[in-house]
Design a protein around this nucleic acid. Structure first.
Lengths: 243, 243
DNA sequence: AAGTGGTCTAGACCACGGC
DNA sequence: CCGTGGTCTAGACCACTTG
């Protein structure tokens, strides 16, 4: 009996193939079965197999060669991030080979700054909920993540907040908002004292800063993220297929 | 008479829709015609229209709402980079609203370092061709780009090299290599004196560093890139759709 | 020549949202 | 209810690579 909603056929095929790649059933550098063979074996149409392989290729897991076959990419394991989840910090930590945990530092409220009001399209003085969390990779603090959300969007009481939730889950559960798309600015900055308290090491050293704006489907901004990212320990590495 | 190879139907549809979005025929925030209407108007199947709309949505140009319609995303103009071309520096400069130009600083040859030999899978002491180029945004130097390629891959004399060529074109024309996929590490560092000579400003200030490894279709590394990126002037901003 | 991936079509059914 | 996008199918033809 299924507890959760059934997944789409394509998602199931995606999981099967990724599992085979990760477990080595399809070994690095080797050729995997053809589209026709996979569609026969899995009992789905070739179009469905193709849509999955296209996604895997775009993320660099496989390399496709017309007239030849589809091969497992042996270098993609170096990548820590993939398209569509650049702002998923737990996956980023896991992609670096560490076990991610999230620690809730504080949850406060304060009026929005001028810049925040502008970006979030708020009236002057509207209040924000500020979430400060610390992401650990195997016990080591690596990302300080601040998120701010207008309090006017709050729909459910935020008692007993589980700090380990993904920002997407928090927005869904307490604000009834679904993320439609995301803009991420990647910047280089120096580690400020306030962040150094959490991340340790030398203040003033170069560090990555990820500034994220979350939008819902009607193009309205619903939240901001400001992440200080210790890239001396964690690598931000992107795989991209050509075409 | 066509001079170049005919483009695929999907690519043509892609160009048409992007042009309509950019020119405002489909104005920001408005709903564009449905899949059926587009397939009727353009004389292509709905599946083809869908594949194009899926690509546009993944890059944030449009937002799709089941049961409602497809809308032009009014915020995507802030993005300067899109998936699949993070390493395309001229597009990145253009995405920031500047006119990109490339200046060839030097072309030299030297033996590979130990690390380079490792990454490029070379024998000890093999020689590299080193290309140093400076990317300008409206006359202002913004990216110092070094590329190294094993000399053993060279297939054509590199006389009269056009420094303005894309690295992909250089690899194709002079080395007969086609890029299959790319790994890019994004790091934060401080501006070293050697790069400061070209980029100006204060040495020691934080700066982005993009380290790229280029692979051909057989999983063999063919080139490296090391880009110093002045993000105090140019923004690295990525748009991502949620699903 | 045979087999692969690349492209495209026509049509079916479903899930969702606005009217 | 109707129209929208989401999913999936079966099949055709093409372009390319390899033996």
């Amino acid at each position: 009996m299924r507890v959760l909603q059934a997944k789409s056929i394509a998602d199931q095929v995606d999981e099967i193939l990724l599992e085979r790649i990760r477990s080595g059933v399809y070994s690095p550098g080797s050729r995997i079965p053809s589209e026709s063979e996979l569609s026969d074996e899995l009992g789905v149409s070739r179009a469905t197999v193709r849509s999955v392989l296209a996604k895997l290729a775009a993320n660099g897991f496989v390399i496709r060669k017309q007239g030849d076959g589809t091969y497992v990419n042996e270098h993609v394991h170096r990548a820590s991030a993939h398209f569509g989840n650049l702002w998923d910090l737990t996956e980023l930590i896991a992609g670096n080979g560490y076990n991610p945990t999230i620690e809730l530092i504080s949850m406060t409220r304060r009026p929005a700054s001028e810049e925040e009001s502008l970006v979030l399209a708020l009236e002057a003085g509207e209040e924000l909920i500020c979430l400060r969390r610390l992401f650990h990779a195997d016990q080591r603090a690596v990302i300080l993540a601040d998120n701010v959300i207008p309090i006017s969007l709050l729909r459910e009481p935020m008692d007993n907040l589980d700090g380990g939730m993904h920002i997407r889950e928090i927005l869904d559960r307490y604000f009834h908002q679904k993320i439609a798309f995301v803009l991420t600015d990647i910047r280089s900055t120096v580690l400020i004292i306030e962040a150094q308290k959490f991340l340790g090491g030398d203040a003033g050293r170069p560090i990555l800063q990820l500034q994220t704006t979350f939008y819902e489907k009607n193009n309205l901004p619903i939240a901001l993220g400001l992440n200080f990212f210790d890239d001396s320990f964690l690598h931000l590495s992107l795989a991209q297929a050509w075409n």
